[in-house]
């Protein structure tokens, strides 16, 4: 054995930026995450050239999965052209030679912050969600070690209790996004800060979802055809945001999650949050031959 044999010719960076040993670690963790849906697998979480808290967890997963034939869509708040989404998409293209897309239907990997696209994902697609706080128990137990024991014992009583307290105090459950959800009947996970509107899209889905928190160093997954049930009481049904009847002022489409745009006169306009879905609808209404995929929501109701 010589030193030479242990090394290889110098290159500035690896394909996909991460080196092979970092990728191997991520691969091992991803497999464990898939084997135990909703369980938070700790991982080393390498630094990547974007700041922590800006999608480094999602990026590490995307970089591990990346190959030159990958077609990558990156969204932030539903939009492809948001500051961070475009920066991440550019980086992925730069280090991976992957094809960039804004069309949900064309993508093989969709990295997203805070939204799941409105068009239904297929069996061959992977959704990578960026996660700021992977621990659904944090509000009731800030100590991670204790929270971990609670997951081990499936001890979710305190989580139910705060939901109940909200119900008593406010007359309804006040949890906005990051709605805690039971995965495969065993582990409660945070679906990441997606709106309540998007949580049903994870239940018994056709696609694979990988959730990754870079700063907090935890990775978890929802394989296809896995149950994801928001924590609700039998007599208080789960309620998504009241966006069923809002109409997008640009595309005239209604029945999907909207961005509210406050106007000078005190009123509000609404636009589709899924920006490329909006673009496609406009293009179609202008007579272009555009294929719009099947959507999870139909007439503002999830099928």
């Amino acid at each position: 054995m010589t030193l030479q044999k242990l090394t290889r010719p110098w290159t500035a960076f690896n394909y996909g930026f991460l080196d092979e040993s970092a990728k191997r670690e991520l691969r091992r963790r991803i497999l464990k995450a898939i084997a135990v849906p909703g369980y938070q697998v700790p991982y080393a979480s390498r630094e990547v050239p974007i700041a922590r808290g800006w999608g480094t967890g999602g990026l590490q997963v995307t970089l591990t999965l990346l190959k030159p034939t990958s077609v990558v869509k990156v969204i932030d708040q539903g939009a492809d052209d948001s500051v961070n989404a475009s920066s991440i998409r550019k980086f992925v293209g730069r280090v991976g030679g992957a094809v960039e897309t804004e069309d949900t239907m064309e993508a093989t990997i969709i990295q997203s912050r805070h939204r799941i696209p409105e068009e239904k994902l297929r069996e061959d697609q992977i959704l990578v969600l960026q996660v700021p706080n992977p621990e659904p128990l944090r509000p009731v137990q800030p100590d991670m070690s204790v929270a971990r024991e609670m997951h081990g014992d499936a001890d979710y009583g305190q989580l139910w209790l705060i939901l109940y307290e909200q119900l008593v105090k406010a007359g309804r459950i006040m949890q906005g996004s990051s709605y805690p959800s039971m995965v495969n009947g065993r582990h409660v996970m945070t679906p990441s800060p997606i709106p309540r509107w998007d949580v049903p899209k994870l239940n018994q889905a056709d696609h694979l979802t990988i959730l990754s928190a870079g700063r907090e160093k935890r990775i978890f997954a929802v394989p296809p055809y896995t149950s994801v049930e928001p924590l609700v009481f039998d007599d208080v049904p789960y309620r998504v945001e009241d966006h069923q009847d809002k109409t997008c002022y640009r595309s005239d489409v209604s029945g999907f999650f909207m961005n509210e745009l406050p106007q000078d006169d005190g009123s509000s306009l609404y636009e589709l949050s899924d920006s490329h879905f909006g673009v496609k609808n406009i293009q179609k209404s202008e007579g272009e031959a555009i294929e719009i995929g099947e959507t999870w929501y139909k007439n503002g109701r999830v099928k």
Partner: peptide, 8 residues
Amino acid sequence: LPHYVTFQ
């Protein structure tokens, strides 16, 4: 970073 979805 924008947080308008969570805020919404």
